[in-house]
Computed example of a mutant assay.
Amino acid sequence: MKRRDLLAGAAALAAGGALAGCRSRLAGTFLAADAQPADYPTSQAVEWMGRYLEQRTGGRLSIKLYAGAQLGSETETLEIAGFGGLDIVRVNLAPLNSIAPLTIAASLPFLFRSADHLHRALDGEVGDEILASMRPHGLIGLAFYDSGARSFYNTLRPIRTPADMRAMKIRVPGSDLYVAMVNALGANAVPIAYGEVYQGLAQGVIDGAENNWPSFESARHFEVAPYYSLTRHLLTPEMLAMSVTAWDRLTGSDRALVREAAQASVPVMRQLWNARVEKARSTVLAAGVAVNEVDIAPFSALMRPVWDTFVSTPEQASLVRRIVAMGDDA
Rank of each mutant, 00 (worst) to 15 (best):
S253L: 10
A193V: 14
R322I: 01
G141A: 03
V291R: 08
A12L: 00
P226G: 04
I159S: 04
H119N: 08
L234M: 09
A262K: 07
V320W: 09
R322W: 03
R3C: 01
Y198H: 13
E315N: 08
D248Q: 15
R304E: 15
F222H: 09
N212G: 14
P95C: 07
A20Y: 06
E315D: 14
A225P: 09
G28F: 10
A20H: 08
L111D: 03
Y145D: 11
V266W: 04
L93W: 05
A105Q: 03
R232K: 11
I99P: 06
A121K: 00
A163T: 07
A297I: 05
F30T: 00
A105H: 02
N274P: 00
S147A: 11
S300A: 15
L93A: 12
A219M: 12
K279E: 15
P95Q: 05
D116W: 00
F310M: 09
E47W: 00
D116E: 14
A297Q: 12
Q263V: 10
A202V: 01
M303K: 06
A105R: 02
A132Y: 09
F112C: 00
R281C: 05
A280F: 13
E260I: 01
G288H: 06
P101F: 01
P298E: 10
A264H: 09
G58R: 01
V306I: 12
S98L: 03
S98C: 03
S133M: 06
P237Y: 00
I88M: 05
T245A: 14
L257Q: 03
G28E: 12
T57D: 03
E260T: 03
L13Y: 13
A45D: 04
R4C: 08
G28S: 07
F299E: 10
L7T: 02
Y194L: 15
S218Q: 06
T283I: 11
D176T: 08
G85R: 01
T309P: 11
P101H: 00
T57R: 02
M165G: 06
L185A: 14
M1Y: 08
S312I: 02
I192T: 14
G127N: 06
E238L: 06
A149C: 00
P162L: 01
